[in-house]
Amino acid sequence: MVPFFAYTTVFLLIPTLVVVIGAFLSGGRPTLGNVRALTEPAVISATQHSVVLSAVTAVGGAVIGAVLAYAVSTARVDGVLRRFVASLCGVLAQFGGVALAFAFLASFGATGFLTTWLAKVGVDTGPGLWLYEWDKGLMLVYLYFQIPLMLIVFLPAVEGLRPQWREATETLGGSTWVYWRRVAAPILFPSFVGATLLLFTNAFSAYATAAALVSQGSPLLPLAIGNTLTSEVILGQENIGKAMALEMVVVVAVAMTLYAVLDRRSSKWLAP
């Protein structure tokens, strides 16, 4: 009991407090300067990029992942296909960072096999620089772990749809379309939104993949925070890093709270 609380205090609560308090300190004195620094154009654009990247890949990943989850759910419950896809997605959802960045470089980079192949059939994708841009390549790369994550999070919800609901709809005179629009969609909606929020935070807090791909500038919030830690910076800069970190925690906390609320509702509907 005591070890647990001591440990979490030192390695979880103190760091959190360091961030929260540090965000309002400068040179040992309380200040709002760091928070004000969040309105600097560089920080604002990093925040914007992060939000857009996370939102787009969350929604895109959620839609594609949901369709995939439904397709998988129509396969046999204990079949090899389902186990195969579930296991693969289990690995790919965690497959961030360096290896993922390399994988895309090897496929879509300047000498990647797809780029070469496309060039052969006459499609010129340019020198492969698009891959490093946050609103092109990064989105594609992020989708690569967002879709599998969606499958893992959303598959249980899809499987919670009872065959009786479809059959009841049919006997009451409803078509397949009616079933999806009036029954399945409303039932899955809370889970879907919840999962999308989870995907959003997942993308929003990802650092490794972006760090491995983007070598110049700090177009994203996590990269900007990382920069304040590694580069030799002027005094006071590290507290601006704390303010950005706090901003991140707030965004993620809001999303996760909403997720928890939605998750509770859908589990009531889908509980056995």
Binding site: R162, Q164, E167, A168, I187, W269
Partner: peptide, 10 residues
């Protein structure tokens, strides 16, 4: 039709 159980739309 009345099913064994759990057929109400939740």
């Amino acid at each position: 039709m009345v099913f064994q159980a759990y057929s109400l739309f939740p």
